[in-house]
């Protein structure tokens, strides 16, 4: 079912958007293509509470099929050659491997507690954060041979890498810290406090940005030392952070109270725009047509928002949708 909602744009922050220049604020193709008809491609949603993946046709915005998984799918990783899409089934302890173009299931691999997972930019490492088992596992990409396990307190959540792939940073949701792990020497460089229940994490210009879900801010840490440099107030339950395709803005989802999406200017890290988006926005993806797709955890829907107006429509999916993957990304780079 598709439902259209009223504008989620917060008028107060529109001024900020105008000040920055709307064209720079919008995702790469939004200025040129927003409003254009949605193109082809499909979206994969990880229904974490329904042990399933929803496939949505981007043109019709309808769920076309539901793929069963064992237990609890949360996040995904695209292999460096873009030929395989790995879905982490955290309490099922396995990776479900799909063809990113067709979403056909090709194989399944047992692996311990894959909650959040990513390949390093150089394609050498595959890192898995095991939130429920308090472990960070570093695998050799390709062979999936476990190189080292870091038992760590506690609840390792999201991760990102330095551009040269030498260090991975992981939020530790249970202890309010961030750990930096040297991937060459396979040792912890630092483990520093950043706030309360950090979740999403992004590396940006020698700094580490983390959404403090137990607070109302994004903490900015020095990537070398782990010292907190700044706090940016975005809203209660600051959760995940994403780059816009043009890398001029950073999008932050806030999960509590005034559930919203806040856009940060990547140069200054100042908030420049806010959208109201009730329903527990979690992960998001930018579509080639300029729209932004969000998983809405609490209402079991996906929202598709036009960032120019803030208008959004919703599509029913399974329980507690979390990760989201748009396959035009794989098709374009194949």
């Amino acid at each position: 079912m598709v439902t259209k909602d009223r504008s989620g744009l917060d008028g107060m922050t529109r001024r900020g958007a105008l000040a920055l220049g709307a064209a720079a604020l919008l995702p790469r193709s939004a200025g040129a293509q927003a409003g254009a008809q949605a193109g082809g491609g499909a979206v994969l949603i990880m229904n974490s509470g329904a042990a399933s993946l929803s496939v949505i046709d981007m043109a019709t915005r309808r769920e076309t099929r539901r793929i069963p998984v064992l237990r609890e799918p949360h996040h995904w990783a695209l292999t460096p050659d873009h030929k395989e899409l790995l879905i982490g089934d955290s309490s099922g302890n396995e990776l479900q491997v799909l063809d990113p173009r067709t979403f056909a299931v090709t194989r399944r691999m047992p692996i311990s507690n894959p909650y959040h997972l990513q390949f390093s930019g150089d394609g050498k490492f595959f890192v898995v954060a095991g939130l429920a088992r308090n472990q960070i596992d570093i695998y050799e990409a390709g062979s999936y041979k476990l190189l080292k396990r870091f038992p760590i307190k506690s609840m390792p959540s999201h991760m990102d890498f330095l551009p040269d792939s030498s260090v991975v940073f992981v939020t530790l949701q249970g202890t309010g810290r961030i750990a930096a792990i040297d991937l060459r020497r396979l040792e912890i460089l630092w483990d520093e406090p950043c706030g309360n229940a950090p979740a999403g994490l992004l590396v940006h210009a020698g700094r580490v940005l983390a959404g403090n879900m137990g607070g109302d801010d994004v903490a900015v840490l020095d990537a070398k030392t782990g010292k907190t440099l700044r706090r940016i107030r975005t809203g209660k339950g600051a959760h995940t952070l994403f780059w816009a395709p043009d890398r001029k803005t950073i999008w932050v989802n806030n999960r509590l109270d005034q559930q919203s999406v806040v856009v940060l200017d990547a140069a200054t890290l100042d908030p420049v725009r806010r959208y109201r988006l009730p329903g527990g926005p979690d992960d998001l993806e930018f579509a080639p047509d300029g729209n932004i797709w969000f998983t809405m955890r609490f209402v079991h829907k996906v929202a598709v928002m036009d960032p120019r107006s803030g208008d959004f429509t919703t599509i029913d999916v399974g329980r507690s949708p979390h990760g989201i993957f748009l396959n035009p990304r794989a098709i374009a780079t194949a």
């Binding site: 609840m155 879900m213 137990g214 339950g237």
Partner: peptide
Amino acid sequence: IQWEDISFG
């Protein structure tokens, strides 16, 4: 709030 992920259960 770190337990939010299983609070739905």
